[in-house]
Design a protein around this nucleic acid. Structure first.
Lengths: 334, 334
DNA sequence: GTTTTCCAATGAAAGCTTTCATGGACAAGG
DNA sequence: CCTTGTCCATGAAAGCTTTCATTGGAAAAC
C-alpha cells in the first residue's frame, strides 16, 4: 500500500497525494477530501524511510545524556522529549556513557541523520577545551544544543544556569546566618563544576572568610553516592575536621550530608546547615526536606527546544541563554 | 558523496560497494580493502534513509516509558539503551504520558517504522483487558516487549518479576518478626499493582492474620510523592489508625513512610518497620537505608533485549520470562 | 468571442541504497 | 583442448516519496 495505490484509487496523481500529505496549499478542497478519505479507508501510512529520503530529514533530534540514572537528568530528558514532540520532533537516544565514548555516540547519531543534537548534563562539556573537539566537529554538520553548560563555536547553542552566581548567593546566605566553616562538596570538575566552585570562593572572599582547602572536596563517580558521602564525612569528622554547613553541587551530595547528620545525631539545621543543587525530586524525599538551588530546569528545557526549533527553521536564535538560579529554602537551612 | 562516487573511484560497481558495506561474503579480499580505503579517504557515510528504504528497517527500537522522572524506570531505560546498542539497535523515545496518550505514542512509533517496541513500566498494562487493545494492535505489526508486567497475545513477549510472590515473602517476613498491623501502600491499580496486593493478602492469610481494609491504601499520582505520603500517614495516625509496619509497592512510598516516622519521632525499625519495592537508587538515599524488594531489574533488562533480538532475528523466544524478587534487608527492618 | 491569467493537477526526475538475475573469468577435471 | 563449476562482479530493477517544470482547463478580462 503505497502512494501509487492511493493515487489510483482516488483518481489523482501521486504528486497530488503527496501535497495532501504535506499540507501544501495547491490542492482544491474537494480533491483533498477525496484523497484523505481514500487514505483513511485503506489505512495508509506513508513510508517514513522514503519520506526521509525525499525530504532529507526524518524530523528527529538526537539526545545525549551524561547519566540517565540521575533523577535530575532523567527529568530533563522527560521535559525535552515532551517539548520536542510538541514541535513535531522525535527523539533518538544517544548513550549514557558520557566519558567513555562521547565521540562514538555522536558519530552514531550523525550517521542516523538526525536534524540536531542536544547534549544533556554539564559533564558532557569538559573543562579542557581540546576534549570538546568531538562536539565542535559535530556542530559543523548540524546544530548542537548544550543544556546545563556553555560552549562557544559555530553551530553551538548553550542554555544554562548561572551556576557561579547561584552558588555564591547560596553560600552568602549560609555565611549570613552565621556559618563560618562551610564544607564544599562537588561531584565533577567539569565546566559547570568549576563555575560553582568559583561561586563558593567568591562568597567567602566577599564575606572576608578565609578559605580552607581542607573544606573543598571532590566526590566523583561512586564517591558521590549518598552513602559514600555519609561515610566520608564521618571519616573527616573522626579526623577532627570541623564544619557547620555543607554546600554541594548536587542534591545527591546533599542527601549524603543529611545522612551524615542523621547518623552522627547532629541537629539540622541547628548544628549543621545543608544546601543542595538542582532542586530535583530528591530534595523532597528526605526528612527534613533539602534546601536546594533551583536552576529552573523546566525553563531551560523550554528554551532549549525553542532555540533548536528556531535554528532548524532557519531563523535566528540566541547563542547563549542564561537563567538565574534561586535558592529554595526548606528544612535544612535556617 | 554517494555510493556511485565511491564505486567510480574504487573502480567497481555500486553493488560491490554495497556488499562491502553490509559485510556480505562474496567480495574478494583485495576488492574489499580497496573499497574500504576509498570510503575512508572520502569520509563517506551511507545515507541512512536510503538504507532504511532498501532494507525496510533502520535497526531502531521504540521505547515507551510510563514515567521518565521515576528513577527506577529511568534506570531501566538506561539499561535497555545500553544493551540494545550492544545489539546494534538504536532507541527512539516514545512519550512518557502513559495514561494520557499511549495510543498516540504507539502510533507515532509505528509510523516511524521501528523494528520493535519495548513498554517500560507496569502501569502501561492496564488491569482492564479492553484498555490494552492498542498494545495488541501494535503487536500485529511488530514484536512488542513488556517489561515489568505480563500480557499475552500474538507478538507480545513479557519479562517481569513475580510481584505477588515477592510481596508475599516480604510481608511474611514482617509478620514473622512480630508485626501484626501491616499497612499496605500501593501507587497503581495496574496489573502488577494488583498482583502485589494479592501477595500481601496471601501472606496475611497464611499467617492467619485478619485483614483490615483500613490498612490498604491506594496512593496514586501526586499522592505517591514522599511528602504527600508522610502527611497522609500523619493524618491517619491522628485519626487513630495504628500500624507497626509499612509494606509498599514502590520505594518512593517507602521513603514517604520513613519521612513520616522521622517526623513523628518513631524509631525505625524499633517501632515501625518499612519495606520498599524495586530496590532503586532511592533506597540508599535515606537514613536509615530502606529495606527493599530487589526485582532484578538489570537481569530483566538483559533478558528483555535478548528476547527482542532473538525475535527480530527470526528465532524462537520465550513468551514469558519470570524473575523472582528477593528482599534486601537494610536499616528499616529488624 | 477571444485572449489572458491563474490555479489545480500531472509527468518525470531525483534522492540512495539493496539485491536478484546475469555475465565473465579463471581453475580444475576429463 | 574443451567442458564444467565456482566465484566475483555487474547491470538493472525495486523500494517510496518529494518537487520542479509543465500542461490543461476554467474563469475573468477585454
Amino acid at each position: 500500500m503505497n502512494i501509487y495505490d492511493i493515487s489510483q484509487r482516488a483518481g489523482v496523481s501521486i504528486a497530488t497525494v503527496s501535497r495532501v500529505l504535506n499540507g501544501s496549499s495547491r490542492v482544491s478542497e474537494s480533491t483533498r477530501r477525496k484523497v484523505e478519505q481514500v487514505m483513511a479507508s485503506c489505512g495508509y501510512t506513508p513510508n517514513a524511510f522514503a519520506r526521509g529520503l525525499g525530504l532529507g530529514s526524518m524530523k528527529t533530534v538526537g539526545l545525549l545524556c551524561a547519566d540517565f540514572a540521575d533523577p535530575y537528568l532523567a527529568q530533563a530528558m522527560a521535559y525535552l522529549e515532551a517539548f520536542l514532540r510538541a514541535h513535531g520532533y522525535d527523539c533518538l537516544l544517544g548513550g549514557c556513557g558520557a566519558a567513555g565514548n562521547k565521540q562514538g555516540m555522536i558519530d552514531l547519531l550523525l550517521n542516523k541523520h538526525v536534524d540536531g543534537l542536544v547534549l544533556v548534563g554539564s559533564s558532557l562539556v569538559e573543562s579542557d577545551p581540546a576534549m570538546n573537539q568531538p562536539i565542535l566537529d559535530a556542530a559543523k554538520r548540524l546544530p548542537v544544543m548544550i543544556l546545563g553548560a556553555a560552549l562557544d563555536g559555530p553551530g553551538i547553542y548553550s542554555v544554562f544556569c548561572d551556576d557561579r552566581g547561584a552558588t555564591e548567593e547560596a553560600v552568602t546566605r549560609l555565611l549570613a546566618q552565621g556559618c563560618r566553616r562551610v564544607l564544599y562538596l562537588y561531584h565533577s570538575p567539569s565546566y559547570s563544576g568549576l563555575k560553582k566552585l568559583q561561586g563558593y570562593r567568591d562568597a567567602l572572599a566577599s564575606a572576608h572568610v578565609p578559605e580552607d582547602t581542607a573544606l573543598i572536596r571532590l566526590m566523583e563517580g561512586e564517591r558521590a553516592n549518598p552513602t559514600a558521602v555519609r561515610d566520608e564525612l564521618l571519616r573527616l569528622r573522626g579526623e577532627g575536621l570541623r564544619f557547620d554547613a555543607v554546600m554541594t553541587s548536587d542534591d545527591k551530595l546533599a542527601q549524603g550530608a543529611l545522612k551524615y547528620a542523621l547518623k552522627a545525631g547532629l541537629a539540622v539545621p541547628g548544628e549543621l546547615s545543608i544546601v543542595g543543587f538542582n532542586d530535583s525530586t530528591l530534595a523532597c524525599c528526605c526528612e527534613p526536606e533539602l534546601s536546594s538551588v533551583d536552576n529552573k530546569l523546566r525553563s531551560q528545557c523550554v528554551q532549549c527546544v525553542e532555540t533548536l526549533a528556531a535554528v532548524l527553521a532557519g531563523k535566528d536564535a540566541p547563542k547563549r541563554t542564561v537563567f538565574s538560579g534561586e535558592l529554595t529554602c526548606r528544612g535544612t537551612t535556617v
